[in-house]
Amino acid sequence: MKRRLIIPFTYLCLLLCALLFISPIGLLLAGSLKPDDLVLVESGSWRALWPASASLDNYRDVFSRVDFTHYLLNSLFINGMILGLGLLLNSIAGYAFARLSWRGRGLLFNLVLAVMIIPLEAIAVPLFYIVSLLGWRDTYLVQILPFIANAFSIYLFYTYFIGMPRELEEAAHIDGAGVVRTYFTIILPNAKPVFASVAILTFLTQWGAFLWPLLVTSGESVRPLPLAIATFHGLPPLRWGDLFAFGVMMVLPILSLFLLFQRLFVRGVAATGIKG
């Protein structure tokens, strides 16, 4: 008797939660398809989530009002560089810490662990001061270089590599393969899950990067999307339809990746909580 009531009640709770978490997204999507003046007017009723006369006009307006493509390319370039170089360098470092024996290894690994708890916010002021002295403001470089090496990524690679069976590497070693060749032919192909996790975590934090670009960029030329939408928000006239169309296009790359690889996303995030 009791059992029969529990399942409908669970679904009721699930649906209620889903409604709370999904409705702002529905509001965004529906608003992006509506005439500008209707977005706010209709937002207080169920019509907020339903575009009665849907059109792509707002999307066209975004492109005529700001150089969206330019911001998108900025974001893609910055994120692509951080991701590509970060995966390579951090995984190699994780490998050296997990699998090779060398002087200073223990000390340097403790340093990596210590550095892990320093958040960007705690170093933003001096980092800003350094890059200003170097004349690096308003460049791509300043948005990429500081974020390639990542202590947490090294740590995640380290914990994965240390759990891998040794037999494969030993076979390669007997065949006379050097460290670098062993890494690329044996380790890399067998470590796809950790690469996926690190890539996803990096992308999740970097795609929305706001504080640092706000500090170090002033012109439009190298600014990424999160900053561009804040600027667009402050650009009169305030047209909610255009703003939401911008928002939908800005989240589309990461949202579509999430929907395609949602299992990997969930696993990647869960990996942050499983500490050794």
């Binding site: 360098l89 951090n90 190699i92 470092a93 490998y95 050296a96 810490f97 090779l100 024996s101 060398w102 002087r103 200073g104 290894r105 340097l108 340093l111 990596v112 550095v115 320093i118 705690a122 170093i123 001096p126 980092l127 350094i130 270089l145 500081p146 974020f147 390639i148 090496a149 990542n150 202590a151 090294i154 050097g178 460290v179 670098v180 890494y183």
Partner: peptide
């Protein structure tokens, strides 16, 4: 494999030193 191993980890370590530890 000491020197090779150190060289492998060097780029990431230099990055952490220059952009995290030093600013800190």
């Amino acid at each position: 494999r000491g020197p090779a191993a150190f060289l492998l980890s060097a780029p990431a370590l230099v990055g952490l030193l220059l952009f995290v530890l030093l600013p800190f």
